[in-house]
């Protein structure tokens, strides 16, 4: 019978903890995704990532403790760095967070005309810190994103109330043609509740090798349908993302020369 040396046992336990952590992180991810099926895909993805990271942090700390390293000092250092970072970047973080939430929940986009407190103009940029407006007298106005959340805004673009915009983020290698196709077919079922003059539109906002950021725009017919439709559209988008999970763009490879057919 094989006998393991005593010094190796903590490492084996640590490895088992890491394996368990991976399993639990995966399960938690699934649970969060299911629970947030009617939220904006970008929010659901963020929540899932947060929950998964939290499980991994706990798991790794337990594994580290298992092999005899004290995590107390590590935790104190991490906490101090965190507090310092929050204090130093409070304003920026506030704006950054506000941008994230306004992107998902506030009904305006680049190109809209909005009024925020004393400011009014056409939105020409939404960055991590502020929303940039072009005023009617050609001046640039930078409105802090936190101010938009605090003060509220008036979107004075024609028919702005009709517009639902849903940010979607998918991995960079995802083939978006099948996703768009699924979304269009699925939302076709909601057409009695949507403005028939404006079919769903999926536009690409940003692309990196890691992710593709898309915006889905649909136009509702009646203002009172806005909330239930937003939930229903989100649900259908989640389902479309799931159905097309396997559709990826093949990595480019050099094209071999073909001989002419005989």
């Amino acid at each position: 019978m094989l006998t393991l040396p005593a010094w190796s046992l903590p490492y084996i336990f640590a490895a088992v903890i890491v394996a368990f952590t991976a399993l639990i992180a995966w399960i938690v991810g699934l649970v969060v995704r299911g629970a947030m099926g009617q939220s904006a895909p970008q929010v659901a993805q963020g929540a899932r990532r947060l929950a998964t990271v939290a499980v991994w942090v706990v798991g790794v700390l337990l594994a580290v403790q298992e092999i005899g390293i004290s995590v107390d000092v590590l935790l104190v250092v991490l906490a101090l760095v965190g507090v310092a970072a929050i204090l130093a970047c409070r304003q920026s973080l506030e704006n950054f967070g506000a941008k994230y939430f306004s992107e998902v929940y506030t009904p305006f986009k680049v190109g809209d005309s909005i009024e925020v407190g004393p400011f009014a103009g056409k939105v020409i940029e939404i960055n991590a810190i502020s929303t940039v407006l072009l005023s009617s007298d050609d001046r640039l106005l930078a409105v802090p994103n936190s101010m938009i959340l605090r003060e509220g805004l008036v979107n004075v673009s024609p028919q702005a109330w009709k517009e639902l915009t849903i940010p979607i983020s998918v991995p960079g290698n995802r083939d978006i043609a099948p996703l768009e196709n699924e979304v269009m077919k699925s939302l076709g079922k909601l057409r009695p509740r949507l403005d028939k003059r404006f079919p769903p539109v999926l536009t690409t906002r940003a692309r990196t090798p890691q992710s593709t950021d898309l915006i889905l725009t649909v136009m509702i017919r009646r203002p009172e349908d806005r909330d239930p439709l937003l939930a229903e559209v989100n649900k259908r988008v989640h389902a479309a993302i799931e159905r097309t999970r396997m559709s990826v763009v093949p990595a480019p490879s050099p094209a071999p020369e073909a001989a002419p057919p005989s």
Binding site: I176, M184, K185, G188
Partner: peptide, 16 residues
């Protein structure tokens, strides 16, 4: 209602 049909979704697919 063409733009809401499954056929138009295929048209969009081809264009995509």
């Amino acid at each position: 209602d063409l733009f809401w049909t499954e056929e138009f979704a295929e048209y969009a697919f081809y264009n995509r």
